[in-house]
Amino acid sequence: MMGTIGIAVLGTGRMAHVYGPKINAHPGLRLEVVYNPRMSSAENAAARYGGRAMDDLGAVLGDPRVDAVVIATPTNTHLEYIDKAARAGKPIYCEKPLDHSLERVEQALTTLKTHPVPFMLGFNRRFDPDNLALRNAVQTGEIGRLTMVMSWSREPSPPPIGYVRASGGYFVDATIHDIDLLCWIAGEHPVEVQAAGSCMFDPEIGAQGDFDLTMTTLKMPSGALAHINNSRACSYGFDQRLEAFGDKGMVQTLNHRDDNLVRWNDRCTVARAPLRHFFLERYDQSFYNALDEFHAALTSGRAPSATAQDGQAALAIALACAKSAKTGQAVTPDYT
């Protein structure tokens, strides 16, 4: 593709409002269309971020000014939009997860095989500069042989219960980000998972049969272990840290802060204010970088680096974690 790439954003929810400004900020992308079957929602979003508001998907996909689509709709609609965009020959950037069901993910893979178009799954945390630097340190052997990789991912407060009901469960909704990230860092997928969960913060989440606090261990083919620590609540803010430990050293990422000054006085030592960021602020740059990767893939003719197969593997692992937490047994992910 030459020149700027015209993008149609499908959906007008929270993630669409993340991608709209990022598309506008990218010199190689152009926000051409904002789509929602409810025209008023499309018009409201287009008024904020530009582009033409449209409520006819067929017209959007048939528009020659639309070179590619960004699917930012609810997870249970992804398969429909992937099918229609692929049949129209439009490259696709799709929010994660691909779906909550491995069967439906398989349908998406079949569609993309039958109608091959460039496809990228929005595992944006791969494109965070700190996370990428840590992975590069592992990949270049800076810490020697990787033996352990760990992720702490804790949210400030539980989401609305309506969101929880439609989320697919905590492992599929949240842990899947850490799963993909740690597998990407390690360069392998686990042969076995062991997970535990409880509900310590919001009884309504427990009433849905879900968890708001989980611990997960992934055993890799190399023998390396990955540990994931998740919480739906955290009194001091959005806690996001990684650690990779090898036989020759260790590398870590730290939380981002508005105030990085360390204070020592007669009231405190090394005291700082609570973390104020949530994922939109903490990973702001990563969303731009992910779109930049999509643009680079389209303009160079190569495949994007975060694939539908990556989404399939992450979902298989997340579902195995959910099964392990329910049964108390170690589980082998179903990668078939």
Rank of each mutant, 00 (worst) to 15 (best):
H177S: 04
L225K: 03
G28L: 07
T269K: 04
A25W: 06
F245K: 09
F279N: 00
Y49A: 05
Y35S: 07
D292L: 02
T214V: 15
E281S: 01
G62Y: 11
Y283S: 03
P159R: 12
R125S: 11
N229R: 05
F171R: 02
V117Y: 06
T12L: 12
L319H: 00
M220I: 03
A195C: 07
A316V: 03
A174F: 14
L225F: 02
V60Y: 15
G13V: 09
R65T: 14
D63G: 04
A8K: 05
R282F: 13
V149Q: 05
R276I: 06
T140Y: 04
D130E: 07
C94N: 15
Y93A: 03
A108V: 12
H115Y: 15
H256I: 10
P64G: 02
P37L: 03
R104L: 15
P203W: 15
A72M: 07
S167V: 06
L218V: 01
E188H: 10
M1Y: 08
L280H: 00
G89M: 06
A313L: 05
A45R: 02
G89L: 10
C321I: 00
F278Q: 00
R38K: 07
L213I: 01
V69L: 09
A271W: 13
D259R: 09
F245D: 13
A303M: 11
N36P: 10
E43K: 07
M250P: 13
C321P: 01
A306D: 14
P91T: 04
G223L: 09
E188L: 05
P116M: 04
L132M: 06
V164F: 13
E281P: 01
D202A: 02
D259S: 09
R135Q: 08
D180F: 14
I228H: 05
E192A: 02
G237V: 01
S222K: 06
A174I: 10
G162A: 12
Q252N: 15
T216K: 03
Q139S: 12
F238Q: 00
E155L: 15
T77I: 05
M150A: 07
A53Q: 09
S222H: 06
K326V: 01
R302S: 15
G328T: 02
A306Q: 11
D56L: 09
Y49L: 04
A244W: 13
H17Y: 06
D334R: 00
A166E: 15
G169H: 10
M54K: 04
K96L: 13
A46L: 10
T75P: 04
H227W: 11
M54C: 12
